[in-house]
Design a binder for these strands. Structure first.
Lengths: 201, 201
DNA sequence: GTCTATAAAAGGATAGAC
DNA sequence: GTCTATCCTTTTATAGAC
């Protein structure tokens, strides 16, 4: 019952933020399975037992990182709502933002298939809440763009949604950059272009 | 030095095939990291030590499965060369085949990021040989399609190649099927369509 | 809450009998 | 070559002192 608990709280919060930042980076770099808790604590510079005071499991650790990513995405969506863009322009901006995040090593790659993490995430309230917010917000834009004839209205909105984010899960971006022949901006442009207009001419 | 070694050889070959088939399925289902050798031997119904007489490591096991997948893909390419199709039609057929394989649970998903498996694969002669064959064959079709104006000629052929196969790495297909609202054929159609013509109308 | 030290379990790989 | 039994490393998670 200290008279000034705020400072201590801030220190703890800062440490948690540092942990989540490390997790986010490692998750983007090697994925959930390959990331070890030992790596995380080594990166942050704390003892493992300390980490487990903040997060009770590796899954919860990853969930915290995912929550933060979703928060960043929701912030971006809010920001875009103030821009003078139509629905299609906003969706393209979201796609661009996503690929840029991935290029910056900020986009965690989750196991696409069944795993302990998947089930942990679906029962994580904070995660699911944000995920639904994101789905609702983008879903509205998609339907709007389809209504305006800017997106193929015969495609189910959910397919459009998943396709938008699919590139964040596949290795194309990383492989293209590994080649070293093209700039990051060029690669992102191509990805946005092929996402919305396909490979055809 | 038995007089009739053929029968025994066939039995061994059949066992190896059973192992590779299991690996292929598990690799498609959960990925390399999440798949355990214990699961494989349980699935095949043999002892772990027996498996290690055939394959010296988990990586080699996965490589064998990948070689088989590439062989199937090369067979498909050979088959398509006999079809009365133009370059674009052949590429679309390859895409369709790939997505169908994934839907059938036959397309192993490899870790996109660095891992022990990646390095093992790049030093696997059988794997690299087939990979280059595949790349060459498809690369020729891509350049041809671009020359005919059927594909955007401003895109690097390698980007086109990776994009074609990217959907085999992302979760869209699986998630769409999990929804249960659409037939497999419908989903594959949509994926091929969005790959070549994008989300726009 | 943070640390050191350690438990507990999983998973890759092998020894040795048959 | 196949089996049982085992080794050994890695990794998740916790006990207990400060």
């Amino acid at each position: 019952m200290s008279a000034r608990p705020r400072f201590r709280e801030q220190v703890l919060q800062a440490r948690e933020d540092a942990i989540v930042a490390s997790v986010n980076r490692l998750l983007a770099e090697k994925g959930f399975e390959a990331m070890t808790v030992d790596e995380v604590v080594a990166d942050v510079g704390i003892a493992k037992a300390s980490l487990y005071k903040h997060f009770t499991s590796k899954e919860e650790l990853a969930a915290a990182a995912m929550v933060k990513v979703l928060d960043r995405a929701l912030d971006e969506i809010t920001r875009l709502q103030a821009e003078p863009l139509d629905a299609l322009g906003r969706l393209q901006a979201v796609a661009r933002w996503t690929y840029a995040q991935q290029l910056a090593g900020q986009m965690p790659s989750l196991p696409a298939q069944n795993s302990t993490l998947r089930t942990a995430l679906t029962t994580d309230k904070a995660y699911m809440e944000r995920l639904m917010q994101l789905t609702d917000g983008l879903g509205a834009w998609i339907v709007e763009a389809q209504g305006q004839g800017a997106l193929d209205a015969t495609l189910p909105p959910e397919l459009v949604l998943y396709t938008l984010f699919a590139r964040a899960c596949d290795p194309v971006l990383g492989v293209m950059r590994a080649g070293g022949a093209y700039s990051d901006a060029q690669i992102v442009d191509w990805l946005v272009r092929t996402c919305f207009r396909g490979l055809g001419s």
